[in-house]
Design a protein around this nucleic acid. Structure first.
Length: 455
RNA sequence: GGCGACGUGGCCGAGUGGCUUAGGCAGGGGCCUGCAAAGCCCCGUACCCGGGUUCGAUUCCCGGCGUCGCCUCCA
């Protein structure tokens, strides 16, 4: 069974399941107010790999990932561009899922939207007010964090420590809050802003309530795993948890956070800092699988550098794996090699050691190639094992795809020239094909072509 | 100021108190090939600095230096 670092307990421990054989996972999805950046891409890939691996081990996974479709950022952008806020949310969401599709990230089992749960949020906030854990002010409703005994569990800081720090920053609703760390559950709306009715006045939900309501509604109390990016650890997840704790509900049993994407200098890539690195640009310029491979070849909790050299190295590595797939297309498969799969599983079960798992993949590819070179029969089980592992990681290898007629004709001409001993012509044709980004492999059986990626 | 992460060979990136190597990319040599490509074999003896613990530390402890993150709404 998978052992996974738990942000709350701060150690690697077994992912305990509420129900045997079934895993319930909630991952915080995007706020749809702009184009996805590469950090979103990493997050999505990390949880996609987690999900696929859990499924591969035979578990039934229920993955819920929300879309935050009402938020200050959406409202602000709508105002500055003079567009309806729904238009921003809808368009950004469709861009998001098209990017996810290109990354080959499986669609979550449920995609709850914040706007669909406003009534439920109002109900929950009402309960918090009723039991004295939340209070209305002139501009909204706030959760009283000092009433949550272990507030700061995920932040790894006590309330006092957090308040002591901070420096000078603008705090929403500061003038009316009972405690500086109290956070908004409900924001009363100003003219022109989207509103929903509530006992405290028309307004909209704060950011943190939606995930509490949606995760408890769809997955139930004490669900197995709650995940997201490192930046959500605090305040978002802390504040989600605070609400659930204040309500006396069992919340996530295990917390998982993936590390940041950093730039060449090691700084965090983040939209809010302005150094946007657009995921769509990356997908246009490189084989999307290259990003998955980069993510797989580093540990999910480490900072990850997504830079040109890395992407190019990944593209080259992919060419090798694809060449393997092309070569083994007609190998008669045997049951996958047990020893290989066991080593793979050991790596993955150890806090998702995907770099170690990839090492097993590459190692197995090499052994299988060697077996094929030597005409040994064990190749079938090794090839099958590679297929298994790649499917568990969501890494789709390709044998090269269709070759257009023009290139096919040139390849035939190349073979003809070679057969006639006209090597000058053969080489010229080969160079021509290579300049058109074909990987040209000339063997006794004839010339095969595989298209190289855009990088 | 508080809390935390990290510093590994040309690049990326794992891991470990000594045992035979992570892995990928790049590079060198060889086999194969008309030549290439793909593939296979071989090659680099790395772990920020200074102390300490130890028979032995890149790995543990302490102290530096450096980079980075969080401290209320950013995956």
């Amino acid at each position: 069974m998978l052992r996974l670092y738990d942000t709350a307990s701060r150690d690697v421990r077994e992912l305990a399941l509420r129900q045997p054989g079934r895993v319930s996972v909630y991952v915080c999805g995007p706020t749809v107010y702009g184009a996805p950046h590469i950090g979103h891409g990493r997050m999505s890939l990390v949880y996609d790999v987690l999900r696929r691996y859990l499924e591969w081990t035979g578990l039934e996974v229920r993955l819920v990932s929300n879309v935050t479709d009402i938020d200050d950022k959406i409202i602000n952008r709508a105002a500055s561009e003079d567009r309806p806020w729904e238009d921003i949310a809808t368009k950004c969401e469709s861009v998001w899922f098209s990017a996810m599709d290109r990354l080959d990230v499986k669609v979550p089992d449920e995609i709850p939207h914040a706007t669909e749960y406003v009534e439920a949020m109002v109900g929950m906030i009402g309960s918090l007010v009723d039991i004295g854990r939340a209070y209305p002010t002139e501009d909204g409703v706030y959760l009283s964090v000092s009433s949550v005994e272990d507030y700061g569990l995920l932040a790894h800081q006590s309330l006092d420590e957090m308040v002591a720090g901070g420096g000078e920053r603008e705090v929403f609703g500061a003038e009316h809050k009972h405690h500086p760390a109290d956070f908004a559950l409900w924001k009363l709306s100003k003219p022109g802003e989207p509103t929903w009715p509530s006992p405290w006045g028309d307004g909209r939900p704060g950011w943190h309530s939606e995930c509490v309501v949606m995760s408890l509604e769809l997955l139930g109390e004490g669900f197995d795993l709650h995940g997201g990016g490192q930046d959500l650890r605090f305040p978002h997840h802390e504040n989600e948890r605070a609400q659930a704790v204040a309500l006396g509900k069992r919340f996530a049993n295990h917390w998982m956070h993936n590390g940041f994407v950093v730039d060449a200098e090691g700084s965090k890539m983040s939209r809010s800092v302005g150094n946007v690195d657009n995921l769509l640009d990356l997908l246009d310029r490189f084989d999307p699988r290259a990003y998955r491979l980069i993510v797989l070849q580093s540990h999910y909790r480490s900072p990850l550098r997504v830079v040109l050299d890395n992407l190019q190295a990944a593209v080259r590595a992919l060419e090798g794996l694809d060449a393997f797939t092309a070569r083994t297309g007609d190998v008669v498969l045997a049951p996958p090699d047990d020893d290989v799969l066991q080593r793979f599983g050991e790596r993955m079960d150890d806090d998702l050691d995907t770099p170690g798992a990839m090492a097993v993949v590459f190692d197995t590819v090499r052994k299988a190639n060697a077996a094929l070179d030597a005409d040994q029969p064990l190749a079938g089980s090794l090839v099958a094992a590679v297929g298994e592992m790649c499917s568990a990681l969501g890494l789709e290898l390709t044998a090269g795809g269709d070759v257009p007629d023009g290139a096919r004709v040139k390849a035939a001409e190349l073979d003809t020239a070679r057969a006639a001993g006209d090597y000058a012509t053969a080489d010229a044709i080969r160079h021509e094909l290579q300049s058109e980004r074909w990987l040209v492999e000339t063997t006794k059986a004839g010339t095969t072509l595989r298209k190289r990626g855009p990088a």
